[in-house]
Design a protein around this nucleic acid. Structure first.
Length: 815
RNA sequence: GGACGAGUGGUGAAAUUGGUAUACACGUCAGACUCAAAAUCUGAUGACCGCAAGGUCGUGAGGGUUCAAGUCCCUCCUCGUCCACCA
């Protein structure tokens, strides 16, 4: 008998699939479509790890399942090759990123193929290909023309190791998302995409998304909408040095609690605030300057670590517009420079941070909201006190009234702010899509016209980043000089954030070879939105950016949908056997190819990773679990071999009821489980069917066995496609021609069923009854009462009530 | 500090709508095959009491709703993830 050797059959089928281009998707097919994709990987130099395999297998299982159901499935693949990780890898290995990228892609593609992934290779894309980034630049141009790509001079996050600025989304706990070093603030002129223009829509649409709640909440928090008011505080004139009147300076603040303005006893400015230098007096200048310089030099981590409030008095005072009181103006780093107005009205009686600050520096505290517990610092709602004409009003009502008053006096208005900032996209790095901009002599930015795209990234030898604050491209004179309309201009030397490239690739998959436009609208509208998008990362950054660009494209009339991803499956990680994260540095990474080569094969690896637990939970790798799954596949192999051997002598006896029931119930379970993405229980159902067939075969193989085995193989094929195809072939058939099996409920109802009998909710006995007699409730109750082990519990008791549930096959006798 | 998850056998886990808790797998134990081992096949396996029949307990802790709770409600504990001085 032939043995199960995955390493013999898997390469065979992989070659067949490649040769026949078995997984090509058809644009505008009559069949209903399914667009299924993973978040495309960055092809790292280390190759695939088992975490990738889980991610890719989920996609592959869904794609193969829906193909069998008759859908026109697009399951593309591509590589996210621009960006920091790729460039850093190239620097480390001493080779140009162009070269390492190609090597890595080839390596990835090969490994990917050996996992048996059914991909439409005609749609393969690579973001660092000029034919791709040409369109990334084109998107930039359209954003620029609509005022959604702009330059601003401001304090930015700067990574001193990677020597580039970073977007807010790329700063994690004050550290660079790539190298983990503490980020600094640097004042620089940078390019931004105005994602905040879509803040409201991005927020409003979240509720309708079929995405995990966790991700939706994270996005909501990230956008961080706050509705409140903006008020101006007039700065009191300094005692003029030369008896000259100064112009009245005003300080704007944002607050969500304008109702507490009567309790605002001081103002606090962020160290970044532009007015500080005008406010200081002779006596305070040196102290304030020192504090500000110090605060700005501090890394974000340092600023966060020390939660002890610090600050310094500017020497200036402002007037509280409601109380007319003279209140001091302070500078403190607990106020953030880039949120709201970078300045606050401090209400120590009703805000903990202000309270702490007032305590430390002995500032006035005035209660303006009543609270029963007499808390010194109370931030709830309540009745206003010490608030002049507004006394006695409820705080929420007072917010509206006071805002009206401020509007009437023209010193305030309603204001909504967001935690989300605009997306900083310029990078002072080499390995990215050049920003398609050139500057004329006056420094005005001109966007490069369509016919001059792509702005090719030149091959340069010295691409190491430096501290100049400019990308290494600035050193390439040929690149920097460009003639536009006869005028010599200087190119922008910064490149775009890699996330720009990944914000539209899902559209490019629909029309990957198009040389005339980024995509054909009809194709994009046919395939999108993505039906299943699978990944385990990028909860806010990438998944927010794709939504932003989608809305922009829709506004531009380039597509007809406003949300790019219908269903998001956020898969968990595969951890090391000890539960710790796998990482190169810990040396505990498991190489999937090694697993395959050890003899387990890709099918066992794939099936194991689906069986390991619910797809969205983290799981620890266990080799014992893998061998269990291998054993299961081996049992299917053996069973089929045994059947083939006995085939000729197989009896053509009457339909085996047990066999039909097993077959149909498994079809039902697996189909329903796949529809609800319960991959682990689907595999369990296949195992049960296999075990069931082993029990049944002791009675000898019937002819019906063949259809049962074939059904099992089709159900198995999304998980273990090689084994299924091979055994199908050995049975003399082509699995490609087999449809996903259907089940018939009539086989699921047996002649006899078990009815559970409870007494007071406790299991006391079981009845075997004819299925037909289930409907006779009176009879069922009678039977239940007379069942010997139930009867025992009823003697001498009065029966209060009998609950009979034929559907649940349950009788509960209440005494 | 805030938001969101999650706590079920020795282990990974199942229970889809409130209705037989622990499916499936690992591990362990036993048996078959074998000179022997591995592989394979078969069976047992929540805890406690009992020769057995059977009984008691049992889904992080405590309370509640219900004929019936892993599932719903309240209080608390532990772990995880993300965010975190956002006015």
């Amino acid at each position: 008998m032939k043995q199960y050797h995955p390493n013999e059959i898997e390469p065979k089928w992989q070659a067949i699939w490649e040769k026949t281009q078995a997984f090509e998707a058809e644009d505008f097919s009559e069949k209903p479509k399914k667009y299924i994709a993973e978040m495309f990987p960055y092809p790292s130099g280390y190759g695939l790890h088992v975490g990738h395999v889980r991610n890719f297998t989920i996609v592959d299982v869904l794609a193969r399942f829906y193909r069998k159901l008759g859908y026109n499935v697009m399951r593309p693949f591509g590589y996210d090759t621009f960006g920091l990780p790729a460039e850093n890898y190239a620097i480390k290995s001493g080779l140009p990123p162009q070269e390492t990228t190609i090597t890595n892609i080839n390596h990835f593609r090969e490994q990917f193929g050996r996992m048996g992934m059914g991909v439409d290779w005609s749609r393969e894309i690579n973001t660092s290909d000029p034919e791709y980034y040409r369109w990334t630049q084109w998107v930039f141009k359209r954003l620029f023309e609509k005022g959604l790509a702009y330059q601003a001079d401001n304090f930015q996050w700067w990574c001193p190791v990677d020597k580039t600025v970073l977007a807010n989304e790329q700063v994690e706990n004050g550290r660079c998302w790539r190298c983990g070093s503490e980020v600094e603030k640097k004042r620089m002129r940078q390019w931004f995409f105005k994602i905040t223009a879509y803040a409201d829509e991005l927020l409003a649409c979240i509720d309708e998304l079929d995405w995990p709640e966790k991700i939706k909440t994270m996005q909501k928090n990230w956008i961080g909408k706050s509705v409140g008011a903006e008020v101006e505080f007039e700065v009191l004139d300094q005692i003029p040095a030369k008896n000259k009147r100064q112009t009245h300076a005003k300080i704007k603040v944002f607050t969500t609690r304008i109702d507490t303005i009567f309790g605002a006893t001081f103002l606090v400015l962020a160290p970044e605030h532009k007015l500080i230098s005008q406010l200081v007096t002779k006596n305070t200048t040196s102290k304030v300057t020192q504090y500000v310089t110090n605060a700005l030099r501090k890394s974000e981590v340092e600023r966060q670590e020390n939660k002890e409030k610090t600050g310094v008095f500017t020497g200036a005072y402002a007037i509280n517009p409601m109380t007319k009181a003279k209140i001091p103006i302070w500078v403190a780093d607990y106020v953030l420079g880039n949120y709201g107005e970078g300045a606050i009205m401090a209400v120590p009686a009703h805000d903990e941070r202000d309270f702490e600050f007032a305590k430390k520096f002995d500032l006035q505290i005035i209660q303006v909201v009543e609270n029963n517990d007499n808390d010194k610092c109370y931030h709830g709602e309540g009745k206003l006190i010490n608030s002049g004409e507004f006394d006695g009003q409820q705080s929420d009502k007072a917010r509206e009234e006071i805002t009206k008053e401020l509007i009437r006096r023209k010193i305030g208005k309603e204001r909504t702010t967001y935690k989300m900032r605009d997306w900083l996209i310029s990078r002072q790095r080499y390995w990215g899509a050049p920003i398609p901009i050139a500057y004329d002599k006056t420094g005005k930015a001109h966007v490069i016209s369509d016919d001059k795209l792509p702005v090719l990234l030149p091959k340069i030898t010295d691409y190491l980043p430096d501290d100049s604050g400019r990308s290494p491209l600035a050193k390439d004179e040929d690149f920097m000089k460009v003639v536009i309309n006869g005028e010599v201009m200087t190119r922008e030397s910064d490149t775009m954030d890699g996330y720009a490239c990944s914000s539209w690739y899902l559209l490019r998959y629909c029309d990957p070879k198009n040389a005339k436009q980024a995509w054909d609208k009809r194709k994009a509208d046919y395939w999108n939105p993505v039906d299943f998008y699978v990944g385990g990362d990028h909860a806010v950054a990438h998944l927010l950016y794709v939504r932003f660009w989608c809305k922009f494209f829709a506004d531009e009339g380039l597509i007809d949908f406003r949300e790019p991803v219908k269903k998001l499956l956020y898969n968990g990680y595969i951890n090391a056997p000890d539960g710790k994260k796998m990482s190169k540095s810990k040396g505990n990474v498991i190489d999937p190819l090694e697993i395959v080569e050890q003899g387990y094969g890709a099918d066992a690896l794939r099936t194991y990773e689906m069986f390991i637990g619910p797809y969205d939970m983290d799981a620890a790798w266990a080799t014992e679990g893998l061998s269990g799954v291998y054993r299961f596949l081996n049992r299917i192999w053996t069973l089929t071999q045994e059947y083939l051997k006995a085939q000729k002598s197989a009896q053509n006896h009457t339909k085996d009821q047990m066999l039909s029931k097993l077959q149909h119930s498994t079809v039902k379970r697996v189909t329903e489980d796949l529809h609800r993405n319960s991959f682990n229980t689907a595999v369990a159902a296949l195992m049960e069917m296999t075990n069931g067939l082993y029990k049944l075969k002791v009675h000898g193989f019937s002819k019906d066995f063949e259809s049962a085995i074939k059904t099992l193989l089709v159900l198995l094929s999304p998980f273990a496609p090689h084994l299924a195809a091979e055994l199908f072939q050995q049975l003399g058939c082509d699995i490609d021609k087999a449809k996903w099996p259907k089940w018939d409920e009539k086989y699921l109802t047996a002649e006899k069923v078990t009815v559970v009998v409870q007494v007071n909710g406790k299991l006391r006995g079981k009845l075997e009854v004819e299925t037909e007699s289930l409907n006779d409730e009176a009879q069922l109750g009678k039977l239940a009462k007379s069942e010997p082990s139930v009867k025992k519990h009823l003697t001498g008791q009065k029966i209060k009530k009998i609950i009979i549930l034929p559907k649940n096959r349950l009788v509960n006798i209440v005494i």
